[in-house]
Structure formats: C-alpha cells, structure tokens
C-alpha cells in the first residue's frame, strides 16, 4: 500500500515535472512580445542625422514596450553594411534597423549589396526631409530654371553630393533623368565636404537632404543660396524656399528614414511595433525633437511603407542603369 502510494506520488511528481517543463518551453511562444531587450541597428556613425533619429525613436519605444532598446551603430557604405547584418539576423522582432531611401530602394539594385529588396519586413516610415539644390550666393545661377537651362545647353555644370549612391546623389540623378539634362558629379565623402567644394568654387551646386540646409545657411551667413526643395508643398522648416514645382519642375523627392525588421518577422510583431511607432510619431513632443535636427515626421504604416520603397525602386532602376551602378 505504502509502496503503491509512493508510486502514485512519484508518478504525480513526474507528471508535474513534465508539465512544468512543457510550460517552461512553451512559455516564450505564449508570452507577450517583447520579453527581452531589442537591438536597433543604426547603419550610420554616431552623431549623424540617422543616429539621432534612431535614438529619438529608441527612447519612447523603450517606454511603451517596457524593455530596453539598444542602439548599435554599424556604419559603412551608405547604410548597406548595417542593413546586410540586419538581413542576416533572426526574424523574431528582437533585431530591428533603420533604413533609408537609398539603402532600401536603391542599394538592392546595385552590385552585391548582401541583401535584396525581399530581405526586410518594412515596419514604418519615420521621418523625411525634401531633397534640395543649393548654390553659392555669388553663383551665376540664381534660380533653378537658369541652372537647368545651363545644363540643357550643354555647358559644363559641376555638382557634388554627400557621396556616390547616397540619397541626394540618386535624387539629383533622377531629376536629370526626368528632365533630360546632364552634369558632372564631383564626389565628396560627406555633406560637409560637398559644402567645402561649393564654397571653394569647385562645384556649381550641391544636392543635399533638406535637413542639412538650415544649419548650412545659418553657419555660412549668406554665402549659400538654396534654389529649391523637392517637397509637395513648401517645407515648414524653410518656408521661404520655393518648391521645385513652383519653379516649374514637377519633381517630388525626399530623403527618408524608416524602421525595418528582417523578412519573416511575425506579422503581429510588425503590426504591434507599427502601432506604437505611429503613436510616438504623432506625439507633438516628437515633432519638437525632430525640429532640432530639421526633419519632418512622415509616418507610413507597413503596407504604405512597403509600397513607397517599391515605387522609388522602380523609378531608380533606369537611373542606376544609366549611371552604371545597376547590378549586371
């Protein structure tokens, strides 16, 4: 009898153990996302605009998700290095990254970038700033029209951008493609270097993200003139600058940054993140923060964002082909 009882006890104990083990293993699948820290890959160096955007979104995300969001900077090749690492991460929602117009829409079309357009699950677009062209104040091109006329007439017009394959570089090339003009690109390694080239007279104009212009203009006290910004309407951060449309060029293009996860990340995780990001971006506090580094909030949900990437990708394909940067 005692033996029987003890056997029962043992059985019960065993069953209890098995059940508890099963629970323990099933636990993570049942638990609410997220239950551990999230890694956010910022594919640009510390201190830059993308880094600031990443950190700006990381902090409120921590609060609403109740877990830490660690920003990891993996700079290189215009964001391609960090995104290539992201594409190889486990698609469980615990590794996210910041992508941009050039790194998400253009880079997959270029040679061996380490990822394709199918590598990511877009979560949400975060911020944008319109592309713009600027000249030195004493330039002979005082408006967009005269600049484009000069390019059309076959004169040698030189320009610079923050780097080959960067958003502003490709934006300008897309503009050239659309209006059938040509100009000679002089390479710079950064927006600052492009500005040095503009002020030394080495180039006639620069193409840059609008976010660079407010500081450029104020620091150079009248030495720089922004000819136009390619926004749909005038940009609230620089309301005096006309749009390309106003100047007679129907061209809309912005530099944007968005949150992406590796492809295969569960849909409910993507949706949950998108919902939280939307709340954060619509918060007036965020807009104040964004004003500090001259971006505008530009939320798009997962589907809209994926569409945006595809549209730009399609537009960029012939441009990349023409300038010899497309995948063979």
């Amino acid at each position: 009898m005692i033996e029987l009882l003890s056997r029962r006890v043992r059985l019960a104990a065993r069953a209890g153990f098995v059940a508890s083990m099963a629970l323990a293993f099933a636990g993570p699948a049942l638990a609410e996302y997220p239950d551990k820290p999230i890694k956010l890959i910022v594919p640009f160096a510390q201190g830059g605009a993308t880094d600031q955007v990443g950190r700006m979104i990381a902090q409120p995300l921590e609060e609403v998700l109740g877990t830490s969001v660690a920003v990891v900077n993996q700079a290189g090749a215009g964001g391609a290095v960090g995104l290539a690492n992201l594409s190889r991460a486990r698609p469980d929602g615990y590794t996210l990254g910041i992508g941009s117009d050039s790194s998400l829409a253009a880079r997959p079309l270029m040679t061996e970038s380490g990822y394709t357009s199918e590598s990511f699950a877009p979560i949400a677009r975060l911020v944008e700033a319109p592309t713009g062209f600027a000249v030195a104040s004493n330039s002979k091109y005082q408006d967009l029209k005269s600049l484009v006329e000069a390019m059309k007439s076959g004169q040698k017009v030189t320009w610079s951008s923050p780097g080959v394959g960067s958003g502003p570089h490709l934006a300008a090339e897309t503009f050239f493609e659309k209006f059938g003009v040509q100009a000679t690109h002089i390479n710079a390694q950064s927006g600052k270097e492009a500005l040095v080239k503009l002020l030394s007279g080495e180039v006639d104009f620069v193409s840059a993200a609008g976010s660079n212009f407010p500081a450029m203009v104020s620091e150079n006290e009248g030495a720089i003139k922004v000819l136009g910004l390619a926004g749909e309407k005038r940009w609230p951060r620089m309301p005096d600058i006309p749009t390309f449309k106003e100047e007679g060029f129907d061209f809309i293009r912005s530099q944007w940054f968005g949150l992406v996860a590796p492809a295969g990340t569960p849909e409910d995780v993507v949706n949950k993140l998108a919902t939280e990001v939307e709340k954060i971006m619509n918060n007036p506090e965020s807009d104040k923060l964004l004003a500090n580094f001259h971006f505008s909030s530009a939320y798009q949900g997962p589907e809209k964002f994926a569409e945006q990437i595809q549209i730009e990708s399609k537009e960029l394909a012939p441009v990349l082909q023409r300038i010899g940067m497309a995948k063979k």
């Binding site: 700079a75 290189g76 290539a84 061996e112 970038s113 380490g114 990822y115």
Partner: peptide
C-alpha cells in the same frame, strides 16, 4: 565595389 569578394562588410 572593389576587392570585396561578395562580403558585404567590406563594402565600407
């Protein structure tokens, strides 16, 4: 890309 041997980390 030059001398990257298909390794994305070398792009930079």
């Amino acid at each position: 890309p030059r001398f990257t041997f298909g390794i994305p980390d070398l792009l930079a």
